[in-house]
Write a protein that binds this DNA or RNA. Structure first.
Length: 955
RNA sequence: GCCGGAGUGGCGGAAUGGUAGACGCGCACGACUCAAAAUCGUGUAUCGAAAGGUGUGAGAGUUCAAGUCUCUCCUCCGGCACCA
């Protein structure tokens, strides 16, 4: 039985807080401001499960904490209610989406209220409110004016189930992310936003954001910038009436490998367009193209299929602009039509895909990049001359004893493989065998294989006092007999057989060793895709990859190009429940933006809002809405007028992500009818200081950043990024480890938890159960610990005494809880308060101590702390009190416990006064029986003393 | 395949390079109770009778000292996926 009635307390206090308006945000911050924001929810019909409020509880704690520290806090909440989910819910339940949304919002609000969240509801916003979407439409017109919104008829992703076009971001593995139907390519008229114009800035500005690195990286990958160049290869042998240019453009990021091109490969799509332009290919080629195009249709639907590489020679040749060489042009299925120019220069020696293809069709492989390592231990020295040597590295392995043969240089202590130069008339293998014999005496060895092309290394050779550039070929031998002849010349080397575990970089001096090991272990035959020194490339020989890239592009007529994986944002949906576009067309189909004075363009009420599926929105059927009379103003905008001509409205609607791309601005100035946000208010409250939510790593968070940057460019906002800090939350799974879902019958409703344990217990448990950013499973038993904890806090009230024995722990706790809230480590904050409460139960404490505990617990458990606060006769509200200050002097104990280690092992502890010097600490240790036992009268070899912590006696 | 993140008791998890397992759940025993629940107390990594040994996915390394730093490998989760 609980010692307090949580149901009664919760209800009374929530009512009190609402009435007194203690969470009302000021229009302008008067002191330091903090804007803390949750990713606003889509109010689904299912209501909340216990996972949903986790982020809201965290922001609630954070904002209460900040408020107690003197900040003016903006902590609002609203609803992202347009879009497919709401519409589908409405269709299923045969209600109007607006009615469904209103009902769901009411339900959500009551559920949130149960948890004691401190939102200022006077700032509530809703993306489906015309006063809100007026500004969504307004932003669109500005984008159009700046050339960032355009119409396109290019084929786009189409979901046949949802009956709408989709953005790339809405497609997962070739399926619609909502219903998992394979998407099709369908050419329909679309509004598209030019997000690619902002691609560079979206990458660059990530640097300054305090976001989880993983999210930043995901965005970088999604934008997928690659810098390279386009080269033109002239074609010969292209027959027929091909009326295109007789050349092909290729895109590459590795211009430094252009001398290694041994064929050109084009995509089936490009081949097909050549056919359409009159290329007379032979029948085999034609049917092969058809085959590949068919295959592509399948792999576009199922992205998990990566078909075997195949191709066909076209009888066409392409001339390499670098060396004039004519190389065959192939059609290859691994070259994608939609990427780059749809054609590549193939460099099998340095690209794995080209390598695989070249192997299959017996195409030549030409090495042009040589791996290059600079020795980090014996780095080349500026003041020494440099000598280039070509040599062999003999790796000799004894399979019987599983050992490698090495030489240990006595003078320098180096371990090295057998290395030797190549003498006149010798081949590599002969040279290696001779060296092995001369330096180790072994003669019964068998050559197994060559370890790829040479590797170049730069190092300082101390024994010769010169820098060496060494171009080495690795050769692998196995020992077949023990016969050893006398060594020809003794260079002071010890001949050793060592274990595999010692034949590793770090133990061996050879900086080429990683290459040899990799080639020994994994790849007999491979493409080297790294960078290095350019070889076999005429005047570029000897340059480093990076320099060669630059120079080759400039010299050989390359055109520098930046490419992105990110594509422009397909912004129209052929559905009802979204923001209408502020767009009309005249009879010649010319497009006009609606004049600002006409905004918002209100979404009309309709009887049937089912999607048509023919690429038209349901709005197209409402003639009285679609047709509107008006005229075009001098600024080229549409204004309605009963006397005007007939125009037709755009009938697509905006996607779900439109409103959420800027909603955070509106919270700062939610009722402004003149402008999106007042300039001075924007300057005062923005940016969002802490943004909390999950999911959306690449969609919402890229779209919102894009819109924000645009609004910055047109002077609406004054910061280049919307969300300074992002805290990503981990989800709460059901007790069975699965997602909570009606389908599994494992949903835990927060209302039930609140009823059984109270809101505070729910809050404390959700914060305590795991680190905030980590996914964790709900536990119906573990929550009892949090419940018990609050009960014990309550019980402590009767134990207040006149003197305090808990000062040190209390101040330590104040410090830690504050720091942990600041860094979103709520689980350890709770645990620290538990430690304090445990101590308070055992020791005596004062009223002041107890008040401090209530204050630091208040953000986590606002109801019970406020209740006790009142019972104790304190005035006002605990939530209006100041965060207690901790005093450094209580953090330091007078007597410290020293860990006694003998030889690095923990053997015991003892106590000495704080800040004792080493002598005192050692004396303390020597008194210890453990010391006597392990050390006795022996003189320690070394004593390591870490003040106030530990002493380590090495013997 | 590539890029991230993570592997610690029966479970959730804690640990500025310095006593591994804090805190909580669970469990065991005890108290209270006719009894149970609730509550409180004690114990709880592992092997060992003990002394002591062993332990943070596996293996190496650096260090007086490694869960923590370095390398190799394994497993799980997330993202991207023939991007030239």
């Amino acid at each position: 039985m609980k010692s307090y009635d949580h149901e009664k307390i919760d209800k009374e206090l929530e009512k009190k807080w609402q009435e007194s308006g203690i969470y009302k945000t000021k229009e302008f911050p008067e002191s330091k401001k903090v804007y803390i924001l949750d990713m606003f929810p889509y109010p689904s019909g299912e209501g909340l499960h216990v996972g949903h409020p986790k982020g809201y509880i965290a922001t609630d704690i954070y904002s209460r904490f900040k408020r107690m520290n003197g900040f003016d806090v903006l902590h609002p909440m609203g609803w992202d209610a347009f879009g497919l989910p709401a519409e589908q819910f409405a269709l299923k339940n045969k209600v109007h989406p607006r009615a469904a949304v209103e009902k769901n919002i009411a339900n959500f609000k009551s559920q949130l209220a149960n948890i004691g969240l401190d939102y200022d509801w006077s700032r509530e916003i809703n993306t489906t409110d015309p006063e809100f979407y007026k500004w969504t439409q307004w932003i669109f017109t500005k984008m159009y004016e700046k050339g960032l919104a355009y119409e396109s008829n290019e084929p786009i992703n189409w979901c046949p189930t949802c009956k709408t076009g989709l953005a790339n971001e809405d497609v997962e593995n070739g399926e619609c992310e909502r219903c998992h139907t394979p998407v099709e390519k369908k050419p329909i008229r679309q509004w598209v936003l030019k997000i690619t114009d902002y691609a560079d800035r979206l990458i660059k500005d990530l640097d300054e954001l305090n976001w989880p690195e993983g999210i930043k990286l995901a965005q970088k990958n999604w934008i997928g910038k690659s810098e390279g160049a386009e080269f033109t290869f002239n074609l010969t042998g292209i027959s027929g009436q091909h009326h295109g240019e007789h050349n092909v453009k290729i895109f590459t990021t590795r211009s430094d490998t252009i001398f290694g091109v041994t064929y050109v490969a084009i995509s089936p799509l490009l081949a097909n367009s050549w056919l359409n332009m009159g290329w007379k290919a032979n029948a085999d080629v034609k049917s092969f193209i058809d085959e590949l195009l068919e295959e592509r249709k399948i792999t576009e639907k199922d992205y998990s299929i990566i078909p075997e590489k195949k191709g066909i020679f076209t009888n066409i040749y392409a001339q390499n602009p670098a060396n004039g060489e004519k190389v065959p042009v192939w059609i290859a299925n691994y070259v994608l039509g939609g990427v780059g120019t749809g054609a590549i220069m193939a460099v099998p020696a340095h690209d794995e895909r080209d390598f695989e293809f070249a192997k299959k069709y017996n195409l030549p492989i030409k090495e042009v990049i040589r791996p290059y390592v600079i020795d980090t231990v014996n780095s080349p020295r500026d003041d020494k001359k440099t000598v280039t040597r070509t040599n062999v590295h003999a790796i000799v392995y004894d399979p019987k004893n599983k050992k490698y043969l090495i030489l240990r240089n006595q003078k320098h202590g180096w371990d090295t493989v057998v290395i030797g130069g190549i003498e006149e008339g010798e081949d590599l293998i002969e040279a290696a065998k001779r060296e092995i014999k001369e330096e180790t005496g072994y003669i019964d060895i068998e050559f197994k294989r060559k370890l790829g092309d040479p590797v170049q290394a730069g190092y300082f050779a101390a024994h010769k006092d010169e820098n060496r550039i060494s171009i080495s070929t690795g050769l692998y031998f196995e020992l077949i007999g023990d016969t050893q002849v006398p060594i020809a010349e003794d260079e002071g080397n010890e001949i050793l057989w060592i274990d595999e575990k010692d034949f590793v970089p770090g133990k061996m001096i050879n900086s080429e060793l990683p290459f040899w090991l990799e080639r020994l272990k994994f790849k007999q035959d491979f493409a080297y895709t790294g960078t290095g020194i350019v070889v076999n490339s005429n005047q570029y020989d000897g340059m480093e990859s990076g320099d060669a890239k630059e120079k080759i592009v400039n010299d050989l007529g390359g055109v520098k190009v930046k490419k992105y994986k990110l594509e422009d944002w397909v912004f129209a949906r052929q559905r009802y429940w979204g923001e209408p576009f502020p767009v009309v067309r005249d009879e010649e189909d010319k497009v006009y933006m609606v004049d600002d004075s006409e905004l918002p363009v209100i979404l009309p009420e309709v009887e049937s809002y089912e999607p048509t599926g023919n690429g038209e929105s349901p709005l197209a059927d409402i003639k009285e809405w679609v047709e509107v009379k008006g005229f075009i103003t001098e600024e080229g905008k549409f204004k309605s007028s009963p006397e005007g001509k007939i125009f037709k409205r755009e009938t697509n609607t905006m996607p779900q992500w439109a409103g959420s791309s800027w909603y955070y601005l509106r919270f700062a100035d939610p009722h402004n009818t003149n402008t999106l946000i007042d300039k001075s208010i924007e300057k005062a409250w923005l940016p969002v200081d802490v943004y909390v939510g999950g999911d959306h790593a690449t969609r919402h968070l890229i779209y919102a950043r894009f819109w924000h940057k645009f609004l910055y460019d047109i002077g609406v906002v004054s910061t280049i990024e919307p969300f300074s800090r992002l805290e990503f939350l981990g989800f709460i799974l059901a007790e069975d480890g699965r997602k909570m879902s009606k389908r599994w019958g494992n949903v835990i409703n927060p209302d039930d938890v609140v009823k059984e344990y109270g809101a505070d217990t729910l809050r404390v448990y959700e914060m305590f159960m795991a680190p905030f950013d980590q996914t964790a499973s709900w536990s119906t038993t573990s929550i009892k610990g949090s419940d018990k904890f609050l009960d014990r806090v309550f019980a402590l009230k009767g134990k207040i005494a006149g003197e305090s024995e808990v000062q040190s722990m209390l101040h330590k706790t104040i410090k830690k809880v504050g720091e942990d809230i600041e860094s979103f480590k709520f689980n350890t904050a709770v645990s620290q308060m538990m430690i304090l409460v445990n101590e308070m139960e055992k020791a005596s404490f004062t009223k002041e101590d107890y008040i401090s505990l209530l204050k630091i617990l208040a953000p986590f458990a606002p109801h019970i702390t406020e209740y006790i606060w009142g019972e104790m006769g304190e005035s006002a509200s605990v939530h209006k009190s100041n965060w207690p200050k901790y005093d450094e002097k209580f953090l330091m104990e007078e007597i410290v416990t020293i860990t006694l280690q003998i030889g690095g092992k923990m053997r015991g502890t003892y106590e000495i006064p704080r800040d004792s010097d080493e002598k005192t600490a050692l004396e303390g240790a020597q008194k210890h029986e453990i010391y006597q036992k392990y050390v006795g009268d022996k003189i320690p070899e070394k004593v390591i003393y870490v003040q106030n912590r530990l002493i380590n006696i090495v013997i």
